[in-house]
Amino acid sequence: MQIDLSGRTALVTGSTQGIGHAIATGLARAGARVVVNGRGVERVTEAVRTVRAASGSDDVTGAIGDLATEHGATAVLEAVPVLDILVNNLGIFGSTPPLEIDDAEWRRYFEVNVLSAVRLIRACLPAMKQQGWGRVLNLASDSAVVVPAEMIHYGTTKTSLLAVSRGFAKEAAGTGVTVNSVIAGPTRTGGVETFVRQLVGDALPWDEAQHEFMVRYRPQSLIQRLIEPEEIANMVVYLASPHASATTGGALRVDGGYIDSILP
Rank of each mutant, 00 (worst) to 15 (best):
D102M: 06
Q224M: 08
T194M: 14
A163G: 15
G155Q: 00
D4C: 10
G132C: 09
T9K: 09
F168Q: 01
I152A: 14
R33K: 15
R33N: 08
I223S: 05
G201H: 11
G94A: 03
N88E: 03
V237C: 10
H153I: 04
L137H: 07
L5Q: 10
T187P: 03
N138C: 09
R135W: 06
S261M: 13
V41L: 13
L139T: 11
A68S: 14
A22S: 11
R49A: 10
V82C: 04
Y217L: 12
V87L: 02
G174C: 14
Q130C: 05
R225E: 08
S116Y: 05
L222D: 11
Y109H: 12
D102P: 03
I3K: 01
H21E: 11
V48Y: 04
V192D: 00
T13R: 08
S6F: 08
A173M: 10
M214E: 05
A68R: 00
E231H: 07
E230Q: 11
G256L: 02
T16D: 00
T61A: 14
R122S: 11
V237H: 08
A104K: 10
A30E: 04
G167N: 12
R49K: 11
A22D: 00
I227Y: 07
A75I: 10
A73I: 13
P229K: 02
V179C: 12
N89R: 07
H211V: 02
E208D: 13
M214V: 01
A68E: 00
F195R: 08
E78I: 10
E70V: 15
G174M: 12
E100Y: 05
G56C: 02
G65H: 09
G167H: 02
I64T: 14
E228S: 06
G174Y: 10
D59H: 14
T159C: 09
V44H: 09
S141Q: 03
V196L: 02
Q224E: 14
C124P: 03
L199K: 14
R107Y: 12
A30Y: 02
V48D: 06
A30I: 04
V215L: 09
A173F: 13
Q130N: 04
F110T: 13
T156P: 00
T96G: 01
A24C: 06
L199I: 02
Y238C: 07
D103A: 15
G257F: 02
P126W: 09
T61R: 13
A73N: 14
V192L: 07
K158G: 07
E46P: 06
V112Y: 08
W133R: 06
V51E: 05
V44M: 03
F110W: 15
L199P: 05
A54K: 02
A73R: 13
I227Q: 07
A140F: 03
G185T: 12
Q220L: 12
E228P: 05
S181Q: 03
E212P: 07
V114Q: 01
A251S: 13
